Simulated scan of single mutants.
Amino acid sequence: MIYIDINQERVPALGLGTYSLTGQACRTSVADAILLGYRHIDTAKMYDNEQDVGYGISDASVDRDDLFVTTKIWHTDLTRSGITAGLEDSLQKLQMDYVNLTLIHWPSDDMNLEECLETLMELQQQGKTRLIGVSNFPASLLQEAKSIAPIVCNQVEYHPYLGQSAILNVVREHNLMLTAYSPIAKGEVLQDQNLVNLGKKYGKSPTQITLRWLVQQDNVAAIPKASSHEHRAENLDIFNFSLTDEEMDHIHSLSKNHRLINPHFAPVWDD
């Protein structure tokens, strides 16, 4: 496993995303992932699965301190009371005293960013979240957030077809972490002959090549969702090879500003 060291926390660079996983399927997926060796689990209030994630973690019987668990506050709850109640609710559903990282899930046009971040800092001081951060923040807004609070992360869509150079520049300038969601572009990488050919060279799938490309970058983590045991095991099997600098650059060159996640309330992207 590759780790990212952020504010005295060691974050596994590969985690399990749980978006759209609910009920028993979510519980089984989380427990199985932990048994396979995953130690980074990502959830959110909006996913409506925090209780299932908590049950899955409990089923796996792993020491809580060995896990890195992230949750997120939805964009409609970005007030002092909404953030506080939201995290309290998440902790109750997860059956935890703390999470490792709490994120603002999406920015909101009418949020008071300073108040939101101050509230997260207060919850951090209370020990309810070890770290704080944001998600889906454009580079300029990320820079602003960093000037207000000790955020450590921006979780954004990132895959070979959507370069995030502006955000990565801010991330690396401040030693933050970019967590990539939709890292295999909703399966589009599977049909990419560039990645298929690289996979043949290393005896890996296009998915594994893509995930390796992500976690081999400085300050980048990836959280692919995998609903089957086979895919969870496959995604984890990326730490026994490395891509060359030329191969890394070639995958970067595939970027075409192909954004897959862009809801009506999304911010204006500046990169």
Results as ranks from 00 to 15, higher is better:
M1Q: 07
Y3T: 09
I4G: 05
D5F: 05
D5E: 09
N7E: 15
Q8A: 09
Q8K: 04
Q8G: 06
E9F: 13
R10W: 05
V11F: 03
T18Q: 01
Q24F: 02
V30I: 15
D32K: 00
D32Q: 07
A33C: 11
I34Q: 05
L36E: 08
G37L: 08
Y38I: 11
H40V: 13
I41Q: 02
I41G: 09
I41L: 13
D42P: 04
T43G: 13
K45E: 15
K45C: 14
D48Q: 12
D52Q: 11
S61W: 04
S61C: 15
V62M: 10
D63E: 14
R64M: 14
D66A: 06
V69D: 05
V69W: 02
T70D: 11
T71P: 02
T76P: 06
T84D: 15
T84A: 13
A85S: 13
G86I: 08
D89H: 03
S90F: 11
Q92A: 13
Q95N: 14
Y98L: 07
L101A: 12
T102F: 14
L103P: 04
W106E: 11
P107E: 11
D110Y: 01
N112L: 14
E115W: 04
E115V: 08
L117S: 09
E118Q: 02
M121D: 03
Q124K: 06
Q125D: 15
Q126K: 05
L131C: 06
I132M: 03
I132C: 10
S135N: 03
N136M: 14
L142G: 03
Q143Y: 08
E144T: 06
S147M: 06
I148W: 09
P150S: 02
P150C: 00
I151V: 13
I151Y: 07
I151M: 05
V152C: 02
N154Q: 11
Y158I: 09
S165K: 03
S165Y: 03
A166R: 03
A166F: 08
V170P: 08
V171G: 01
V171L: 13
E173S: 05
E173K: 00
L176P: 10
I184K: 01
K186S: 10
E188N: 10
E188I: 00
L195A: 06
L195I: 02
L195C: 08
L198W: 02
G199E: 06
K201G: 00
Y202P: 01
G203D: 11
G203R: 05
P206Y: 00
T207W: 10
Q208W: 11
Q208N: 10
Q208T: 02
I209Q: 05
T210V: 04
R212I: 12
L214C: 09
V215Q: 00
N219Y: 07
A221F: 09
A222W: 00
A222K: 00
I223R: 00
P224Q: 03
P224D: 04
S227L: 05
S228F: 10
S228L: 07
H229G: 00
E230K: 01
E230M: 06
H231L: 11
R232E: 15
L236F: 14
I238E: 07
I238Y: 03
F239W: 11
F241I: 09
S242G: 04
E246R: 00
E246H: 03
E246P: 05
E247W: 09
M248N: 08
I251R: 01
K256G: 10
N257C: 08
H258G: 07
R259K: 08
R259Q: 15
R259G: 14
I261L: 13
N262H: 07
N262T: 09
P263H: 01
P263K: 02
P267I: 01
W269F: 15
D270R: 00
